[in-house]
Nucleic acid binder design. Structure first.
Length: 613
DNA sequence: TTTAGGG
DNA sequence: CCCTAAA
């Protein structure tokens, strides 16, 4: 059985070809040894499917391998395979990032995975330069898998590596060049007009490009709502030049390093990094999340663009989803905020994990104006031009990521609109993971034709994208803070204000973190693995770990029992994870007091446990 | 501030 | 999750 798990349509002006990644799922019994085979292929315009050469396949495999989790998650058939050797992995498993879980689940997989990571590191090193040439990207050819690398190759070094920070700062300047101005600069007056309109919801007759640019910039910085604006600008960008790819890549590199690089050590003058970083991350996150819908929208978009180019100044109509979400979030804000704030004020001035860059504490109502231009009426979110909040920083960050996220869509923008921390919802996270590959590649079931190998070009760029974005995703699952509303239960009680059910991937991160830094180093783990989660304080981690511990041991007796019963409304934690937890607990001899005494360090968990239970 | 533990 | 004590 073979399935195309990822398809990337050419983003160029003419969609000549489509890159596709085909997964060959051997449904034989040999899955464990050889679970998946990736095949690269290109689909030309007429739909002909051209398999990649072996070389290309190899490269792709390396690159994709550690990303595979996402693909697994996304494709049903993949999921099946993913779970094939472990029944305890139920459907619940699907929606989450099982990259790490896979490791737990199957030792062989783990081995492969680690290897893959190493290989990837090497290969990327090789590939990157070439990629550089192709795209002429300014970004330094850095190790793409730095994140993973730090995670897997330097697992036991508790202290952060200065080198990462160094790298981080070394390439940082690169993107600073990529300001929004540049992109706006490349727009014609006409385009600027369109942008302007999208931004402010009204037309302008001003011909002065400078003025227009400044206006638009201000509008953007002011509103935080770059949704339409950004989109349009980007569209124009795409139309105008193919440069967008560069931007994207740079951005990705940047993201990569934001994770590993931000070690807190040399934060002296780099205050900007965190902000831009998280902003970008959010974008990535959303980007990956919504990429599917974006892609399905692609045709329409192109049409719209054409219209635009023909002087038919049409503004892209906001998607229904966008509108809905904006208003939804707004209403949520209103209902939730007062309670929350009142409560927090009651418990003292202490602010919880409120992100520093939580601009615009109060959400803005979404005002839309009806625009009848271009024949069909469109609702355009109207953004006031009055500046409030901290525009400058805001502006910069916005402009910074503007050119990159062509996949950035409603959801993302919606968040930005809220002025919230760049983060996505918990549930959203899962949904997104399930729904779309982080790569923004859509999953289109194609029937693979066993064809001859053909030349396959321009792979590196795509591959880079894959790895990058996938990489991102593994750590970029973030949550929006502040969806926390008190839910008055029927019983009269008020349910917890902030209660964010732990995501499976979060749990995994936690477990991994503990395995790396040891239980107790919560702040470390928080900084590293949960850098993007503004909620989840170190205390939370600790608590969760405590729970996991409890769960893991409690669940032991019923080991064979499939999963956990559904009695807990929360997500059942896959047995493998619990196993891992127990293992770690044992290793760090932080087990339940009873077992504390074990003299032999290397004792196996199971021995002990079996003795007690 | 961070950890640990009780509520 | 929240709150606190202790380091």
């Amino acid at each position: 059985m073979e399935t195309v798990v990822a398809v990337e349509e050419g983003e160029g002006i003419n969609q000549e070809s489509t890159s596709a990644i085909v997964i060959n799922c051997s449904d034989s019994s040999n899955q464990i040894a050889d679970p998946v085979i990736y095949k690269l292929a290109r689909v030309v315009g007429d739909g002909i499917y051209i398999p990649a050469t072996d070389d290309e396949v190899m490269k792709a495999e390396d690159l994709i391998d550690h990303k595979s989790s996402l693909h697994f998650v996304l494709d049903n058939s993949q999921t099946t395979i993913c779970n094939s050797n472990d029944d305890t992995f139920g459907q619940e498993f699907m929606p989450i990032d099982c990259e790490d879980l896979l490791a737990f689940e199957d030792p062989s997989t783990q081995g492969e995975r680690s290897d893959a990571v190493v290989d990837t590191t090497v290969d990327l090193g090789k590939l990157n330069p070439r990629f550089e040439e192709v795209t002429q990207s300014e970004s330094t050819p850095v190790d793409q898998s730095g994140d993973e690398k730090q995670a897997d190759l330097v697992p036991r070094s508790a202290e952060s590596e200065p080198s990462m920070s160094t790298i981080c700062s070394s390439w940082k300047p690169d993107f600073s060049k990529l300001k929004g101005e540049i992109c706006l600069d490349n727009l014609s007056v006409k385009e600027l007009h369109a942008t302007f309109k999208a931004t402010f919801g009204r037309e302008t007759s001003v011909k002065d490009k400078q003025w227009l640019k400044r206006r638009i910039s201000m509008g953007l910085s002011n509103s935080c709502d770059v949704s339409l604006t950004t989109f349009n600008i980007e569209s124009n960008e795409i139309e105008k030049k193919d440069k967008l790819e560069d931007c994207n890549n740079k951005d990705e590199n940047r993201n990569k390093y934001s994770f590993t690089g931000h070690e807190g050590g040399n934060d002296g003058g780099d205050n900007k990094i965190p902000v831009g970083q998280s902003q970008t991350i959010q974008m990535e996150d959303h980007f990956s999340g919504i990429s599917k819908s974006v892609q399905s929208d692609a045709p329409k978009r192109h049409i719209a663009l054409e219209d635009d180019n023909q002087g038919n100044k049409r503004v892209r109509k906001p998607t229904r989803r966008y509108i809905e979400e904006v208003s939804e979030s707004d209403s949520r804000e209103y209902s939730g905020r007062p309670v929350s704030s009142a409560r927090s004020s009651g418990s003292g001035p202490r602010t919880r994990v409120r992100p520093v860059h939580n601009i615009q504490p109060v959400s803005k109502p979404l005002v839309t104006r009806h625009d009848s231009l271009g024949g069909s009426g469109v609702e355009i979110p109207y953004v006031s031009r009055i500046r409030r909040g901290r525009p400058r920083e805001n502006f910069m960050s916005l402009m910074k990521f503007q050119p990159y996220g062509m996949g950035m869509t409603a959801r993302l923008v919606n968040k930005a609109h809220d002025g919230h921390d760049p983060q996505s919802d918990n549930d959203i996270e899962n949904q997104e993971l399930k729904a779309t590959p982080a790569t923004g590649w859509s999953l289109q079931p194609l029937i693979k034709e066993p064809g001859e190998n053909e030349e396959y070009s321009e792979q590196s760029a795509d591959l880079n994208n894959i790895s990058d974005e996938g990489q991102m995703d593994s750590y970029a699952d973030v949550d929006s803070d502040e969806n926390i509303l008190t839910v008055p239960t029927a019983k009269g009680g008020m349910r917890r204000k902030h209660h964010r059910p732990w995501t499976l991937s979060e749990v995994v991160k936690l477990v991994e973190g503990v395995s790396r830094y040891g239980a107790g180093r919560w702040s470390e783990i928080k900084r590293i693995a949960f850098a993007t989660c503004s909620h989840r304080t170190s205390v939370d981690l600790k608590d969760k770990w405590r729970n996991l511990l409890r769960a893991s041991f409690a669940q032991l007796p019923a080991e064979k029992g499939v999963q956990n019963s559904k009695k807990h409304s929360s997500i059942p934690i896959p047995a493998p994870i619990l196993l891992r937890v127990r293992e770690l607990a044992e290793m760090q001899s932080q087990v339940s007091p009873e077992v504390k005494f074990d003299g032999h360090s290397g004792r196996n968990v199971n021995d002990i446990r079996s003795g007690f239970l």
